[in-house]
């Protein structure tokens, strides 16, 4: 149906003996907000650098807006906005100077595309004369986003924009991405925060250079395919140890104030019986819906 904005076919990149990106294939639609979710070392940055024409793949190919990442790199550089993981604006230029610099490089002006960045820029405008290096984490990230947007790119490539950023700024940032997506920009974003997966249209869960699954967050959760229990007692440390050693336990992971448990077979009453036997008090056992992190861990242990 919709137009394909990004397509990758069997992309592979090795560094010496380490395969950073291992035969990745995917298609991303125009105006889709697509997330690559995975821990450090999963291959996210390598993949994003290949898609941004900053790194050559060893094999396989990829296109952005129909242009090949190797042969048409100059064309791609004009139509993408890239925000690298490490803050890479000019620290001793002011907020306004940085923005002007990026506008000029792309042969445009702040005025011409102001509408696109207005909502974000307004928040940092009070500090427009401050050197970029002296901004707080959240503000740096907003400025970097403005600079990546100032030439009105078709595709926005954001490498871990929210890493190390507090929960409040993270939430604001995702709200900005939603609005940008509605203006027709295709956005790919990587993150190690599993809870951010739910904010994407579709995601790829990536680990050790491999994509474990690509789907909508809802479908990924559906594929969990096992009853999940949230368990709690008055002594969480001992509960964790007891469940870990229980024969019937399949997986047991801490999750906030609960332990998420799957068992080989059986139901709630068997868990209750086991915990009574182990003298746990104030026991709570609930059947719950898994979240993306549950799904990620399940896929990890299968791979």
């Amino acid at each position: 149906m919709s137009e394909i904005a990004i397509s990758a076919n069997n992309l592979t990149k090795k560094y010496g003996e380490i395969t950073a990106v291992n035969g990745l294939s995917f298609e991303i639609k125009k105006a889709e907000l697509f997330g690559f979710i995975g821990p450090d070392g999963a291959g996210k940055t390598t993949l994003f650098r290949i898609l941004s024409t900053l790194l050559l793949p060893d094999s396989g190919n990829a296109t952005l807006a129909g242009f090949d990442v190797v042969n048409d790199y100059k064309k791609i550089r004009n139509i993408i906005g890239y925000m690298p993981g490490r803050f890479s604006l000019y620290q001793d230029l002011s907020v306004e100077e940085n923005l002007k610099f990026f506008a000029t490089i792309f042969g445009t002006t702040i005025k011409e595309n102001y509408e696109l960045i207005k909502d974000i820029y307004i928040q940092i405008e009070p500090f427009k004369t401050r050197p970029a290096g002296k901004l707080s984490g959240g503000m740096k990230q907003k400025l970097a986003l403005c600079c990546a947007l100032i030439h009105k790119p078709e595709v926005l490539v954001l490498d871990e924009p929210t890493t190390g950023v507090d929960a409040v700024s993270r939430k604001e940032f995702w709200e900005m991405l939603k609005r940008l997506k509605e203006s027709g920009i295709t956005i790919i974003v990587s993150t190690p925060y599993m809870d951010e997966a739910g904010l994407c249209d579709r995601v790829s869960l990536i680990q050790g250079g491999n994509i474990m699954s690509t789907d909508t967050p809802a479908n990924i959760i559906k594929a969990f395919n096992k009853t999940l229990f949230a368990v709690k007692s008055h002594e969480m440390y001992r509960l964790m140890q007891d469940l870990h050693e229980w024969d019937a336990t399949e997986t047991t992971y801490l999750f906030g104030q609960h332990i998420h448990l799957t068992i080989q077979k059986g139901n709630k009453s068997e868990i209750a019986a086991f915990l009574t036997d182990k003298q746990h008090k104030e026991v709570e056992i609930q059947e719950i819906e898994p979240n993306i992190e549950d799904s990620f861990m399940r896929l990890m242990s299968k791979h």
Binding site: G38, P39, D40, A42, T163, G164, P192, M194, Q207, Y253, L254, E293, F296, M297, M300, S301
Partner: peptide, 9 residues
């Protein structure tokens, strides 16, 4: 920060 969810646990 950045650690996979199993290792984090």
């Amino acid at each position: 920060g950045g650690v996979d969810p199993i290792t984090r646990r």
